[in-house]
Write a protein that binds this DNA or RNA. Structure first.
Lengths: 112, 112
DNA sequence: TTCTTATGCATAAGAAAATTATGTATGTTT
DNA sequence: AAACATACATAATTTTCTTATGCATAAGAA
């Protein structure tokens, strides 16, 4: 992600969240989708994305199938059943984290 | 931070945000304040905090003064003038980041 | 009175997760 | 022909944590 070094550790969650929305996606497509959703603010680098995808696959959360389109190979990723559960879990964890973070960034002024 | 490995990269921002609210704080106090604000959800470890404080000081964003209280030394940190500007900048950057992150986590369903 | 917990600082080794650089290959646009 | 886009992948390095360790004082529990 180029938008600074923020949120290291959330890339896997982002990927799985996108795969909840869309049955199957390939790596390059993911980078473009994130770029599109954030109006160019997040730029996922391949050096971060591919190792993440490989790890999630190794953990059994994603499966792959390759397709050849216009003579170029695309490797499509989909959530497995466990991946689906993990996606919900990771997203919930991230959202809970964001709630707490807001409390630190915008603490309620003490009453009285 | 113990609440998982999320949000690496935001600790410096959190520290500076707290110092915007409170003139001067010492390390241990910062860990307790964050714990308090997040109802125990974030636990900042010393191994993360002290190097961060030292780095911010080296960069000229924080100054220190030590005080002895009950025979124990406290090292108080305060924002410098540049630190004040940097704090605003870092917080704004993090908040902008969170806005974009929300767009990825909760994309608006396509119309039509 | 001894052990544990709390307060308070600090550093070092290791792990996790990025960035940056590089490599291969094809297709499209200038 | 050169540049840019599509599409994958890996390696070296950097950043930023976690975990472990160390020192020291104070307070509370056993």
């Amino acid at each position: 992600m180029s938008s600074s070094k923020l949120l290291k550790g959330s890339l896997a969650t982002i990927v799985m969240r996108l795969l909840e929305e869309q049955e199957k996606m390939y790596g390059y497509e993911i980078t473009q989708k994130v770029k599109e959703l954030t109006a160019g603010e997040f730029k996922i680098t391949e050096g971060a994305l591919y190792p993440t995808l490989h790890k999630l696959e190794a953990e059994g959360f994603l499966t792959t199938e390759t397709q050849k389109v216009d003579n170029r190979v695309r490797k499509y990723y989909s959530l497995t059943r466990e991946g689906n559960a993990e996606a919900k879990s990771k997203v919930a964890e991230l959202e809970a984290f964001l709630v707490q973070l807001q409390k630190v960034l915008n603490p309620k002024p003490s009453l009285g």
